[in-house]
Write a protein that binds this DNA or RNA. Structure first.
Length: 187
DNA sequence: GCCAGGATGTTA
DNA sequence: AACATCCTGGCG
């Protein structure tokens, strides 16, 4: 159970996405067990921002592995990703769902009226519950004292096509713990 | 439980 | 125009 360093993200993005399942994501007093992720590749992946956004390609070039890539989707939901950079491919891992572990009072305050299991059961819900917004974009959060990712024992992990996209739906790059009650969608 | 529709802002 | 979403309201 040690804290993950940036070298963890200097590997194949798909491997990173799978191995993050079960790890704990800490962010400014709140924490959750990662139960759902998706991998996006910076080359040959039409669903990745790098496919159509020059700004995303610049981000990959000018930032380091492990830095946060945060953007606003549908005008109201922040999406939280980690940058992956390696010889075996670069890209992003989208954090899609957490099981709340710490800072429950704070999370409940930001997500009034929602049951604990569903506080972060989706990529937009996750950032809302954790208090993540555009100010986190580009941040090297692994180095912060109150933020980071803590490694766990390997968990049995399921894969499926990625959710909510229209391009490259067939690539099986969504990963998760099928037993979790905090998924954005069942496997 | 399912589905349709609307909110909302940034990118290209 | 599309978009890595979420919530509500209508069903029955």
């Amino acid at each position: 159970m040690e804290k993950i360093s940036a070298t963890f993200f200097e590997r194949n993005p798909v491997i990173c996405a799978r191995e993050l399942i079960g790890c704990h994501f800490q962010w400014k007093g709140c924490a959750g067990r990662i139960v759902e992720t998706e991998a996006y590749l910076s080359v040959d992946d039409p669903a990745c921002h790098t496919w159509s956004r020059p700004s995303a390609r610049v981000f990959v070039e000018t930032h380091q592995a492990g830095d946060a890539y945060v953007y606003l989707n549908y005008g109201m939901h922040w999406m939280f990703n980690v940058l992956i950079k390696s010889d075996e491919g670069s890209g992003f891992v989208l954090f899609r769902a957490l099981e709340p572990v710490a800072g429950l009072e704070e999370m409940r305050g930001r997500r009034a009226g929602v049951g604990d299991r569903l506080l972060a059961a989706g990529p937009g819900k996750l950032t809302r519950a954790m208090g993540i917004d555009g100010s986190a974009h580009g941040v090297c959060f692994l180095g912060n004292a109150d933020c980071g990712i803590v490694r766990s024992k390997p968990v049995e992990t399921c894969a499926s096509g990625r959710i909510g996209i229209s391009k490259a739906v067939e690539l099986p790059w969504r990963f998760g713990d099928p037993a979790s009650l905090s998924l954005s969608r069942k496997f």
